[in-house]
Simulated scan of single mutants.
Amino acid sequence: MAKGRLRRRLSRINQPLADRPVHSLVDRVQIPQDIPSPWLRITKRIVIALAVLCAVVLIVYIDRDGYRDNQGDGLSLLDCFYYATVSLSTTGYGDITPVTAGARLVNVLVITPLRVAFLIVLIGTTVETLTTESRQAFKIQQWRNKVRNHTVVIGYGTKGRTAVAAMVGDEIAPGDIVVVDEDTAALERAKSAGLVTVRGTATDSEVLRLAGAQHAKTIIVAANRDDTAVLVTLTARELAPNAKIIAAVRESDNEHLLKQSGADSTVVTSETAGRLLGIAVQTPSVVAMMEDLLTPDAGFAIAEREVTTKEVGSSPRHQTDIVLGVVRGNKLIRVDDAEVDALELGDRLLYIRSNEER
């Protein structure tokens, strides 16, 4: 008997995260939700309580002939309000009672449920606290059932936050972005930004599976260490063979390791920052323009679009837009390359877009 209980306990511990009951994931997965102001919630509860009170008053007043006070008199409208108040608050002084069978039946079938509803409204904060976990578990289950083609951001430090800000500025919905991190403070910042968060280390395939990486369209690896980025990229590629993986690396010597691990694109953060610092010495305005191009929600931005049928056969250098390059067959070709002297159907143009065009 003891061995059987131990075996069941161990099986629950070793159960993959994605296969565990939803209520056990509440501490790991957080779904953003709109929280109304306290005054709005209080006002709403007061209105509901008054509506219930008025409903009881109306019911008692309509059937007032079925009630008597302790002196045997009938009920006035004020008596109905008094009876409804003491009845809903469960005070019940007993000075007004239903005497006919119909009045008592109405008390049992109508007024008693309204009394329960009235009490729930009064203690709504406690009830809401008790049901928060259940509602969160329900939202997690809904999210897991429908999450597809989203973006998973691994690491919500400076690089991760900046990447998310750029995506949101490029009109990607925050609800389509999932952040994976171990740091509680980082997850709180991501949650306050309206992002879905998953707590855990991304080197664990079960944590990535919980974030829906197997169904993701894009995975961004923004780890703080290069060795962690390589391991995360390898784990993510094994779990999501069709996802586009973009990984950041601090040192260029480690860039080939990311590509070998399955990264489609890599960004060398230290060298990129170094180049911008060097350029800023002689031409700081160039750096300012680069910053403008990399900020999608202001000024100019680098964008990508498909070639139209009217543009097929023409040169990318003779377009209305300022074209920087042509993407053909997942390969980026510079605009001055003879290979793209004539645009083809299916090509994509990398061009400079004004923020006013959005």
Rank of each mutant, 00 (worst) to 15 (best):
D176V: 02
V286R: 08
A165T: 09
N355V: 12
T308Y: 04
E171Q: 10
V60S: 00
D204H: 08
T201V: 12
R237W: 09
A18W: 14
V29M: 01
I59W: 06
R328K: 02
T235E: 06
R5P: 04
S285C: 07
D347W: 07
S314E: 14
V52R: 06
A51H: 09
T43C: 09
Y61E: 02
T131P: 05
L88K: 03
V230H: 04
R41G: 04
V108G: 04
D69M: 00
Q141N: 09
T97L: 10
E133W: 13
A298H: 15
A163E: 15
R9A: 10
A101H: 12
G74W: 00
D264L: 05
V207S: 02
G262T: 03
E311D: 02
L50T: 06
G74S: 00
E304P: 06
D69L: 01
V340H: 01
G200K: 08
V106H: 07
G278K: 09
G102M: 13
K191N: 15
S270E: 10
A263C: 02
D34T: 15
P241S: 08
K191Q: 15
I46L: 15
R358W: 03
R64A: 00
I219C: 05
T228E: 06
A303T: 09
R237P: 06
I177Q: 05
R144S: 09
Y351D: 10
G169I: 05
K44N: 13
G313R: 07
P21A: 02
L293M: 11
V268M: 03
H318W: 08
A342F: 15
R225L: 07
G262D: 01
I62W: 03
G72T: 00
L78H: 04
V335L: 03
M289W: 08
I322V: 14
K146M: 12
D19H: 11
